[in-house]
Design a binder for these strands. Sequence first.
DNA 1: CGTGGCTTTGAATCATATCAACTGACGTGG
DNA 2: CCACGTCAGTTGATATGATTCAAAGCCACG
Lengths: 257, 257
Amino acid sequence: MQPPLHRLNEFVPASPLAADLFTSWLSHRKVFRRHQNIRREGDPVSSVFFLVKGWVTSSVMMRDGRRQIVKVHLPGDMLGFPSLALEHAGEGLEALTGVELCSIPLAEIGRLFEELPSVAAALFLSTQKERIALMQELTWIGSTHALGRVAGFLLDLHERLDAAGLVEDGGFDFPLTQAHLGELLGLTGIHVNRTLKRLDATGCIERTRRRLRLIDLNGLRGLAPNHAPRYAGIEAWDRLGRPGAGAARPALRERAL
Amino acid sequence: MQPPLHRLNEFVPASPLAADLFTSWLSHRKVFRRHQNIRREGDPVSSVFFLVKGWVTSSVMMRDGRRQIVKVHLPGDMLGFPSLALEHAGEGLEALTGVELCSIPLAEIGRLFEELPSVAAALFLSTQKERIALMQELTWIGSTHALGRVAGFLLDLHERLDAAGLVEDGGFDFPLTQAHLGELLGLTGIHVNRTLKRLDATGCIERTRRRLRLIDLNGLRGLAPNHAPRYAGIEAWDRLGRPGAGAARPALRERAL
DNA sequence: CGTGGCTTTGAATCATATCAACTGACGTGG
DNA sequence: CCACGTCAGTTGATATGATTCAAAGCCACG
């Protein structure tokens, strides 16, 4: 299977050095089963991850035992970066399906800043984008009804799955339970159920076994509180002044003995 | 007034080059009045900001005209980074008090990656920390009562103000209206009022004019859903392999003619 | 001394949570 | 091949927290 590199090349033009680096990351992969913990909240932070295949939740626990899912990760996502500045992970990572990922040691990230500033800058931009996504999610949860939250999440998910090439005829595999959706959107699983039924009844979506189809995208958009912002691509990198573009600096491979 | 540089030196040991850079940023400042827009959502993104003095809200608008405040910024914070990857700003910035800040052109950030990788890495870590803060906020809002949300926010605020040296005897200036708190915590201003009164009645807090005092921190912690995670400092940078630590690279000033 | 912003209060209503029970699909072991 | 247990989804009745609307009070400022 071709790993979903589209996200890694999002902000920075593909360069041979970067490509070498990525393939070296992608060479040793780990596999996780459904429901397996990839990293528990509180574990020492020793690496970040690149998700090659499958879905992963990133969640925060509360004292009373409940948890808030803060992000549903899809293939191509980088995982674990928020905890980079923490001694112990602030977010748990759990496999929602069978998962294949690459573990990237922290020192590797340091080398990136040292030797491939353009890639480091791209990574930086990409995590800022995640910050916007979090802000967006906060907005859904903070100030809309259940209907808007569910609609908003489904639209966002659809868009991301589409970008990863995982949508067929408006439909996609959907491994989240209603309880998961509840933990993600700040609702009870039960209320999620009623809301999904409502969406179903209005003909916006179609649910079968473990698959979901968005039929009426515009209908959903009418229910959702706000649309996703437009992301820049290479332009953003341009505006930063193209870090690393022309600089003569030691090549990664020359030092990597 | 001494600008609050503590945040800039959080993850990286002070170096003469970095100090020069920071003082060059800090040399031209802008001033904003209370309630003035620093940047509107949708404005083209041309710079980021360093907040020297005053409070600033960062907020996202919704179609129905309501807005969600996603962060209350205090002196020493970097503003506007989430929109770095967007053509048009995804978050509005508004002065909550009189404000003094420095505007940093995007190209300056690019230069950072190019020429001072250690500072770039520190900036990266610092924005990851912000991501954790957002996740934390999401957790409050997604899965707790009004009481927990308010208590959690006040504790977090107190901690940050304390780090900035703005707390005196447990008390601090508090320019947020109850409506602001509502927009921040996903509640009605009215409900915030009732909640504050409740906290007041139990003796956890004390409100006077535009000032707030947290009297019973442990009591508040009992109400809040979760405590803030422990942040690493220089250690985090160590774990990354100290980018830029020993590298001989062109000094910033030599090129800055 | 009046005006406008912010806070406080009450009553009615709505959305969501909670509790409890039932259903159907699936996988497992006898 | 069937009986069983588990897990996800479904449904109803009731409780509660938060919103909405309306109005009064307070204070600061011009």
